[in-house]
Amino acid sequence: MSLYELLRGPLLWLAFGVFIGGMIVRVVLFFQLSTKKDKPIYRFFSWKWLWLSIFHWIVPLNETAKKNPITTAVGFIFHFCLLVTPLFLLAHGVLWYESWEISWWSLPETVADYMTLITIGCGIFLALRRILLPYVRVVTTTADYVLLGVTLAPFVTGYLAYHQYFDYYTVLILHMFFGELMLVVIPFTKLSHFIMFFFSRAVTGMEFGRRRAPSW
């Protein structure tokens, strides 16, 4: 089995398995522990404050966004491109079709190309923030840089592969490897905010909501 076939087949299954399974385990563990030791969540449970809290932060409708317009804009564009580009990339769509004969709408290639560059640009901005602002530098750990690197690597290699810079096969292998690596680390690191964001926003939204003090 070639390296390509390995990354395209069993390792991709493994990556998706760890990613999805890991997320499910995180959610199950949260419920298991919280029903025992976080009684206030359930005692003051409120769908209203849960949704309001998530809504006000999933779109920039909060004081922090107003006070930090540039960081907020970069953060939102970064997350948007990060999620949308790989899901609606034509080349990825072709792979899904090859394997499962399923297909969905895809982005025009030029748009996807720019979105890739924007993602990388936003990533560089976030890295510079870490380096230049003393109050971000002080909380920054090596893991923060590594995880930012792991997140950006699939985009950088994807860009290089699309434009066929350097040795195409090597770049493609690296692209697949980093893409799968990113999925795998999500459940085990701070990147788990992919799912835990919703839980954290929900519990804090309800905690402030029951005091009629919106947390945004």
Partner: peptide, 15 residues
């Protein structure tokens, strides 16, 4: 507890 574990882990160190 579950909240504490979650919070201590997901902090993105954004400042």
């Amino acid at each position: 507890n579950a909240r504490l574990k979650m919070w201590l882990e997901i902090c993105a160190h954004c400042g």
